[in-house]
Write a protein that binds this DNA or RNA. Sequence first.
DNA 1: TTGAACATACCAACTGGTTGGTATGTTGTC
DNA 2: GACAACATACCAACCAGTTGGTATGTTCAA
Lengths: 206, 206
Amino acid sequence: MPSTRPAPARTKLLDAALNLIREKGFSATSVDELCQAAGVTKGAFFHHFESKEALGAAAANHWSEVTGAMFAAADYHHEADPLARVLGYIELRKSLLEGEPAEFTCVAGTMVQEQFGASEDIRTACRDSIFGHAATLEADISAALAAYGLSPDWTAKSLALHSQAVLQGAFILAKASSDREVARDMVDHLSRYVRSLFHRPPAQEA
Amino acid sequence: MPSTRPAPARTKLLDAALNLIREKGFSATSVDELCQAAGVTKGAFFHHFESKEALGAAAANHWSEVTGAMFAAADYHHEADPLARVLGYIELRKSLLEGEPAEFTCVAGTMVQEQFGASEDIRTACRDSIFGHAATLEADISAALAAYGLSPDWTAKSLALHSQAVLQGAFILAKASSDREVARDMVDHLSRYVRSLFHRPPAQEA
DNA sequence: TTGAACATACCAACTGGTTGGTATGTTGTC
DNA sequence: GACAACATACCAACCAGTTGGTATGTTCAA
């Protein structure tokens, strides 16, 4: 049987990074803190990552994998109607707005905000995380356009990105106000917008 | 005659902070860098601000004043139709997306993203900046609702905040992709959404 | 009107602690 | 016994913040 081996230092560091970066940002998180949170020494850190910057880029990729697996396993994919899948995705994102900002916030968005000018590796890793995730949504939007026979003056890609923009902006407002309800309202507006684009009734407000 | 007196150190430091925070984030900007950019010594810094954190909060307030004056003087206020004022505001925000991210990005959004958990003073100053700005938009939205005889299931305040969320999210996508056109597309979606809420035709796409 | 008392604005040099990073082990496994 | 995976000990650079000081007002009583 596959007995649970102790998590290797590299994974422990990446998991710790996901939490610490969302709590305090990348710059304000020191290598020592990372090591302490991961229960690992500095030697282990620099054995697995050639620099703090390299860990940042790796953490963004790790974030893509963790969240990618989570969204891939979500229920909304089972909806037959592609628009229902899109709206289901949005409702899932809303339901995820629980607990503290550091728990529901996006690592890639947080990190790229402060590191976009300092590290090209981190920037591209965060870009791939955000835009890659948007691409999974773009497919359902395209299918919905086909199913509803629409050819609007906006692209599926731009609407997928817009949804990410709303979410990222909602995170900022939640952090600023210490109130996740604000973020939920923003997601409601997004849902309303998508329904209007497909000429769907306002439906039930949650 | 009111000859132009040399800018005092405090103002020079705040102006420098506005640029440096947007370029590199708050944590990664050192007090020494701030002083060098402002052409001022460290003694002057700590004469005017009791800590780096205090400068951060002051910078957010300075940002509110600078941008508040700019938006207060904008043309869109002269529109008779309140909805035209809202849409004019959105178009203005789109036209502001020029140059490098550090030039069109929001200081408050950038700073609160990394400092919300570290400094309550900075967090509230950024919150006041963002939510205070949204309040100026909320008045026009309320007037538009009255003018068009609408009583929707969303509030003027939440739509004003939604517009800020879209803009903040657009900034993040622009930073991640190094492409401000992405941000412009997000603002187009916002404009389309607002028009749909007021049952206005798609109108011309810019 | 003057000058002592005080306040403001600023400066150069310094400090103790923290930073990312390195050099050199030790350990367990194939 | 060789190599990856760690640990320990350390360092130079940098960090926010402090020090003791100067130059330039401003206030107000004699």
